[in-house]
Design a protein around this nucleic acid. Structure first.
Lengths: 218, 218
DNA sequence: CGTCGAATTGAAGTAATTCAAACTGTGTGG
DNA sequence: CCACACAGTTTGAATTACTTCAATTCGACG
């Protein structure tokens, strides 16, 4: 996490895959790889570093005492996560599959507040907007509507036009959508029966009727 | 919304009731009163102003095409709302009861980004944290757990020690917690039967056993 | 005292969960 | 190359938490 060459630093500085939606926070640091399901940080741990996904995907989540898990968000290549208001992480984070992250000292970003605070605000505001969309889904949408909203959101964020390759398992989707794995599975089968999607391979979803999916989310 | 005296401006500048949790965003503007259920702004309207609650309470919400409503948050005296990343409000806002708001031009706050961006970031980060707590509640908690979490959150935010006076109706609570009004009512009755609360007057809740309520939220 | 909106209570219905079993795809070793 | 194991997923049947619809009660206000 600490060793890096000047060349690598240079390479990272000009992050190539940053999506248009991601505010430009200058993030310089070492690269590190994570195995599938490996913990990146735990809830309550010191938030000394902030992270940017280089490849793979990450889930941030909270767990209730009896094990119920709510995934607050997934993070895809180019996206930043782990920025906290105070010194502790409020969620845990794990790699969804194999993942590579850019790791920067929190102080190097938050320390220079004048240079970064506008970008930090934009990032927090964007995250907040997504969280509120998510809250609407969790509070008021049916299982079919949740899955449809999820597929469209993922398609948009990955830039998938027609074929969507999901990095996460059914259990992850269930814990993101506030459902059980069985309900997610049944719902996907149902959307397929309705001709909205084709999910022959379980993580590769063809979006056959985006309009139809979008109508479910109104 | 536009008329104000220099004296009033001065009075507002040193906002007295700002809670400890609310970042210090300099907010100067006119005061305006709203009736119960009066619209403050609609979803999709230009976000030219930002607001601070002087008295009363505000709900921000989104509505699905068939009328299902999800309240994303309530705002209490001293709290700021209506700050948007871009030029449109992403939620609607209404006064919960009679309310008075300080209204400031968005440009006067966001224009001077150097002076306010750190505070803006802190505010957005604090809102985000609350939204994620809310998402956990909506995604993974039972009706009893939701209501308990809601009562404790409101007690904390209003500074209520033992007696909590709720500004909002059962319908508002239901739409915040992703439940129906009947379920909220039955759940409150149940918590009372368990000796956790005393809800003899429907908007005045005595918290008899905060520990017990907190245990429900673990 | 009567009216009206809000809240509560009751009974029936349903979407999603739970528990259980079967299937699928992938990697491993015989 | 095929049998086997295993994890992830799907399907089925029964249960349940919450919703829906309907009726009653409560509380504020003229």
């Amino acid at each position: 996490m600490q060793v890096q060459s000047a060349v690598m630093r240079q390479a990272i500085r000009s992050t190539p895959m940053s999506p248009a939606s991601e505010p430009d926070i200058r993030l310089v640091g070492a690269m590190r790889s994570y195995d599938r399901d490996q913990e990146i940080f735990g809830e309550g741990e010191p938030a000394d570093f902030i992270f940017k996904v280089a490849s793979g995907a990450v889930r941030c989540f909270r767990i209730l005492s009896d094990g119920r898990r709510q995934i607050s968000d997934f993070y895809l290549p180019g996206e930043i996560f782990g920025v906290e208001l105070d010194d502790e992480h409020r969620t845990a984070a794990e790699a969804v599959g194999e993942a590579a992250l850019v790791i920067a000292r929190r102080a190097s970003v938050l320390g220079d507040e004048a240079a970064n605070s506008v970008a930090l605000w934009r990032k927090a505001a964007a995250d907040l907007r997504r969280c509120r969309d998510h809250a609407l889904t969790l509070g008021r949408r049916s299982a079919a509507e949740r899955v449809a909203a999820f597929l469209l959101e993922m398609a948009e964020r990955t830039g998938a036009v027609d074929v969507l390759d999901l990095p996460m398992s059914r259990q992850d989707i269930a814990d993101y959508l506030g459902l059980t794995i069985e309900t997610v599975s049944r719902t996907i089968t149902g959307l397929q029966a309705d001709g909205l999607i084709d999910a022959r391979c379980c993580r590769r979803i063809h979006l056959l009727d985006r309009e139809g999916l979008a109508e479910l989310c109104e």
